[in-house]
Computed example of a mutant assay.
Amino acid sequence: MAERPYIVGNWKMNGTRAMLSEARAIDRAAQRYMKVEVALAPPYTLIHAVHREAEQIGIGAQDCHPGAEGAHTGDIAASMLADAGAKFVILGHSERRQDHGETNKLINAKIESALEAGLRVILCCGETLETRDAGDAEDFVLRQLKSALPAFGDPAERLTIAYEPIWAIGTGRTATAQDIEAMHRAIRALLDNTYGEDVSAQVRILYGGSVKPENAREILSTPEVGGALVGGASLSAESFLGIVVGASEAEEA
């Protein structure tokens, strides 16, 4: 597993220039926790502005189009994100899958486009409550990943997986440590088989699903958890940094 835990804030469809003060506070505080890699994915409209403010944290985007350019009104190409200052892009988030009908095939095309543009990729996967209750959670998640994982190049330096059980996003519920560990181990085994253990060991697997300062240390101490993809708690510097502190404490334990 990569050495430093990776804590990524996904601002989703939130944020105006007034929130640059939160980004500045996160960036300044992150300089005190060098054992943790911290990043933010603001909306498209703030990528360049946050990039100009940031000295320590990584800046990324929440989606991209699979094409390099063309007549796609309202879409953003990966190369355009890189030009705005983004270093990574979140792809396959459950809200994109649900709200926009994104398929694993489309997500794979987006990943390849992002990698070609020099971006790092955070690939999301996760199951509904109905799928988990039916006992099909691991098989479902692994099918998602098998269809979306990039087939070319060495992904170790630029690929991160984020497991986000859909039933635990924005609900206040979190999976148990045992549930998280079991899923992350299954994902690790798939990565081992796909890329080989030496490469797989460098790919971090994040947990995303109602991560808060109160539960961050426990979650981030769970075997095979290499960080967190944080939603609502990342909108406030105070709450987001509480998670960064939890990651630092888990790393030192």
Score class of each variant (00 low, 15 high):
W11G: 06
T171S: 15
D133L: 15
V230A: 00
R143P: 01
V199N: 13
T73P: 00
A186L: 12
H48M: 11
E214W: 00
G242S: 05
G58S: 14
K212T: 11
M183K: 07
A237C: 07
D154K: 13
I187H: 03
M19K: 06
E69H: 12
R188S: 05
Q178Y: 05
A68K: 08
A201F: 02
E252W: 06
H72Y: 15
I161E: 08
H72S: 01
G70A: 10
A233G: 09
R28M: 05
G231M: 05
A71E: 04
A253S: 12
I122Q: 03
R28E: 11
E53L: 13
L20E: 00
Q98A: 15
K87M: 10
Q98F: 08
W167H: 06
S239Q: 11
A39Y: 05
Q202P: 06
D83R: 10
G126K: 04
G60S: 04
R217W: 00
G227L: 07
A137D: 15
L145F: 07
P43Y: 14
A201G: 12
N215F: 08
I7T: 07
Q98E: 12
A117F: 04
A237W: 02
P165H: 03
G74C: 00
A177L: 14
F240V: 02
A61W: 02
G196R: 04
E218W: 03
K87W: 06
A61I: 06
G60V: 00
E224K: 11
A30Q: 07
I111D: 01
I59S: 00
A228W: 02
G135N: 10
D179S: 11
G246C: 03
M13W: 12
I243K: 05
R17H: 12
R185M: 14
I76E: 04
F140N: 14
W11P: 03
A39F: 06
G126T: 07
G227D: 06
E249T: 03
A23N: 02
D136M: 14
R17N: 14
E102F: 03
S221R: 09
Y6M: 12
E218M: 15
R185F: 09
K146G: 00
Q31D: 13
A114M: 08
W167N: 08
A78P: 05
F140D: 15
G92A: 09
L81M: 05
C124E: 04
S79E: 11
A25M: 09
H48Q: 11
T73N: 00
E102N: 09
P165L: 01
A18R: 10
R4L: 13
A71Y: 08
V199R: 14
T174R: 04
R17E: 15
L235F: 07
I169T: 12
T128A: 15
Q144R: 10
G231F: 02
Y33K: 07
E22L: 05
E252V: 10
K12S: 12
R97M: 13
V244L: 05
S79Q: 12
M183F: 02
L159Q: 01
I76A: 04
R4C: 09
P66L: 00
T176L: 07
G70E: 11
I57H: 07
N10C: 05
E37D: 13
S236H: 02
N10R: 02
P43T: 15
E197C: 03
Y33W: 14
